[in-house]
Design a protein around this nucleic acid. Structure first.
Ligand SMILES: [Zn+2]
Ligand SMILES: [Zn+2]
Ligand SMILES: [Zn+2]
Ligand SMILES: [Zn+2]
Lengths: 165, 165
DNA sequence: GATGTAATGTTATATAATCACACTTGGAGT
DNA sequence: ACTCCAAGTGTGATTATATAACATTACATC
């Protein structure tokens, strides 16, 4: 426990069952609030991401949907993922061509990710969007930033301690 | 002229012919120094990237190679790109699944990119690797960063001034 | 009940990347 | 010179990721 506030669950152990329930409840509330439709497919995709609790490829998710009779073609899962990412319930990890449920949904936040190259777990960190040298460099150059991808690859605490290589 | 130091050529105009020559000469020198083979295919791919002066997909590059009889199958270009990126002569833009010649090769540097979503031009910015909140968050979490992807999407000065939408 | 909109179903295709194996080449060592 | 080895290349096939295009359904509204 005692997770770092800015990292959400991060790489620490946590009560997984309740984290799924909480996230789903939050998503439902947010959808009701914003008049968004959390349809069966969308909801199930979010659940799958929450259960996995790691980054999943679109086709991995699709396989699950197919087994459950919820859809069998790529557009089904990509549409659901579009909805979830557009509304902040999930994020795309560019480095992995994969998707992960948002940890600690805060409307319009600018997440960064720590990706372990050994165990493939991903931690989400909340960081101010324009902070840092990149924002300053952009300002100097007259560039207007709309979205920023920040993904660090490396070793999580567990994997760093075990066999490094 | 008067380019921002930390942005290399950035979005500013510059003498394109000499920037190609200089970069190639630098790459050749670096390869000789490090006993790396800048073979015809590798050299030509780097030239193509330098001439284009923007991010190119692997298959766009391959098409050029094919026209010139230098290779016709995907592995040819991916091998060359592996070499170029592994040795810092080119960079992969994760957001675009594309590649770009390095602007201002400094051994083992940690670049960030500003990507214009309208004109698709890309500027490379040099930023200290562990700088900023992400580095601190990683340290707090006990995460060992090996590589970082930092890519901002938005509008370059020219496109921001013209029709915003 | 007609109409419009959002969501879904389905087929095909586009785009990106890798695998697997044969072949060539240019030294290192004998 | 001969053998061996490692790096690089050629090539066909395959896998992985993502979108285009169009038909259909579900539901709200008028
Ligand atoms: Zn998030
Ligand atoms: Zn790990
Ligand atoms: Zn560079
Ligand atoms: Zn632009």
């Amino acid at each position: 426990m005692t997770a770092q506030p800015s990292l959400g669950a991060g790489f620490a152990r946590h009560d997984h069952g309740s984290c799924i329930e909480d996230s789903l409840a939050t998503a439902e509330a947010a959808c009701a609030q914003a008049r968004l439709q959390l349809t069966p497919v969308r909801r199930r995709v979010l659940e799958i991401l929450l259960e996995a609790h790691r980054a999943m490829g679109a086709y991995d998710i699709l396989e699950r949907l197919r087994d459950e009779g919820l859809g069998s073609q790529p557009p089904v899962v990509y549409r659901a993922l579009d909805f979830l990412t557009a509304n902040g319930f999930a994020h795309r990890i560019e480095r992995l061509n994969a998707f992960i449920a948002c940890a600690g949904h805060k409307a319009g936040h600018a997440p960064a990710f720590l990706i372990c190259r050994v165990c493939n777990r991903v931690a989400e960190a909340e960081i101010a969007p324009d902070a840092g040298e990149l924002g300053r460099a952009a300002t100097r150059a007259g560039f207007v930033i709309e979205r920023t991808v920040r993904e660090a690859t490396g070793l999580c605490p567990a994997c760093a301690e075990g066999g490094e290589a």
